[in-house]
Amino acid sequence: MATDKNEHLKEVLETNKMSHVDDLLDKYKEKRTKIKEALEANYKEKIYSPLNSGSYAKHTAVNIKFDLDLVAPFKKESFGTLEEMFDDVFDFISDKYGSEANVRKQKVSIGIEFFADADGDVISVDVVPGRELNKDQYNDDNKLNLYVNSKYGVIEEKAYMQTNIQAQINHIKNRENERKIIRLLKIWRTTNSEDYKSFFLELISIKAFDNEDISGSLWDKLRAVMEYIRDNVTLDNFTLVDPGNSGNNVADTLESWQKENLSTKMDNMIDRIEDNSDNIKIYFPINDDFKDDDEDKYGVKEGASTFSIPSRDQRFG
C-alpha cells in the first residue's frame, strides 16, 4: 500500500516534537542550570555567564535523542592556553559529577551523561568551553576560541577554532521551513545510526534553501534538500561557512570518503522513496511512543497475534 509521503512526514515531525517530552526536558533544564551555577561558582570572575546553545536553543531539536549544550565563555586571562582551559573544565566536571555521571572529552566539548534516574531517564549535557579572543571583548563581539580536542574531519587535534555561538543561533532564527527539514534530517540521522553532526546538517540545509528554489510540499522540500546535498557535498569547492566565523569551513568536518558516502546515501534515499513510497518509513520513522492510533495500552495492534500462523513480518532463512 502506497504511503502518502507528506502526511507521513508531517506525522514524523509531530511525533518527534519536543513538547511530547516536557517532563523530561524539565529534568534536562534543571541539570543544565545546576551545571551552569557550578561553573559560575567555581570560576567566579574568570567566566562570563554560560550560554544555552545547541539544537534546543535553535529550535531544531527532536525528542528521539537530544542533549542540551552549554557554552562556558572564559575571559582571556583566565588560562594560559586553550588546552589548559579544556583540561581544567574537564577536571572540574569530573570531580563534581564523576560519581553520578560518565564524563568524557569530546571533539570540542565535555560530555556529561548522568546515570539513569528512578524513571530510567538518562540526561546528557555537553559543556563547550571557549575563551574570548581579546581581553573584555566577548560582550561586544560574542566571539570565542574553542579547543579542538580530537581530530574533527580535516581539522587536526590540539588545534583551535574560532566561533560565535550567538551568531550561529541568529543564523537560523525565523527559518521555520529550514528547521522542519533539519529536524527530518536529524530524525533520519538518529534512527538510522548515522553520525553526521547536527551543525553540518543545519548549515547544509540552510545553504540548500539559500541557493536553490525550494518550495512545494514537505516531501518536495525535503527531496530538494537531499538532491542539493547529493549533488554538491562532494564538489571540490563546496564550503559551509560557519556563521560564527567566516574562516571556518564546516564542510571540512567531514573527510572526503564521508562526503562520498553522504552523497550516495542521499541518492539511495531519493531512489528508494521514489521507487516505493513505503520506503519513507525506513528513513523517516514515526516515533511510535507519541503516535495517536488504535493501539491498545501495550502497543499491540489488533490482529498482530494471529493464532499459530506466521505474521507478515515472519522472516525466513
Binding site: 534512527t191 538510522n192 545510526s193 520506503n279 525506513i282 507478515r312 513480518d313 522472516r315 525466513f316
Partner: peptide, 28 residues
Amino acid sequence: SITNHAKDLVCSFSPNIYRFVTTQYSNI
C-alpha cells in the same frame, strides 16, 4: 533473511538492523 518463496532477500548492516529489517517485513 528472505521472504517466502525466496522472493526477496534482506541484508542489513549494523548498527541499525532491528528497525530496518522489521520495517522492511512489516511495511514494505
